[in-house]
Amino acid sequence: MNTVMVKPERCIGCRHCEVACAIEHSQNKTLFGAVSEDPIPKPRIHVEVGPGLLTFPNRCRHCDPAPCLQVCPTGALQRDAETDSVIVDYAKCIACAACAMVCPFGIIQFDKTYQIALDRNVNTKCDHCIDRQRTGRIPACVEACKTGALEFGDVNDLIRTNRKDFTFKILRPSGAEVEVPEVPPNIQAYRDIMKSIADIGIFRD
């Protein structure tokens, strides 16, 4: 099963993933074309800010079983057998938001999309870039991420890396060669400073 794994410690809030996602879900598929389309394409991945101004890119996890799919009264939500993705049949969506009520990640959204000629909002959550996947390409958000915060691949492969790192760390705590590098000291210093700043201003918890 292929999935997008998020490494929150590597997200720096640049929102490249959001822009790439919106472009992928435009008719034109280019930045300059996408910005002048009507309806304007919107991202389906959301970089949210948390405590200490840290960020997290949140998107559909394509759960299985998927609560949204189970409660959809019209059968608009379906599973794509080839990619294991939870996808929306826009024509069947009645925007009742039942799916949003049960989504554990809060990532359902309702918008207009060029993909259906209806002048109403439908569930335009992440479609796992299945069009791209079918042609052997990785999701647009992952391709756009330049910090390694988003990775695409077989879920067990991605987990294996973490498992291996942990093994090395626990057996050789200092100077262990790990596949996933630690957060560099300059970036950690920057985050500590921004946390202090958050504590003395409007971002205080």
Binding site: R10, C11, I12, G13, C14, R15, V49, L53, P184
Partner: peptide, 26 residues
């Protein structure tokens, strides 16, 4: 919010049109 980390860290270069470019801070 969120403000772009590349810009905040100073590793976004938006000078010429071979770019804009950015460096992986990790």
């Amino acid at each position: 919010q969120p403000q772009c980390g590349f810009g905040q860290l100073g590793i976004c270069c938006n000078r010429c049109v071979m770019g804009p470019c950015r460096i992986d801070p990790f």
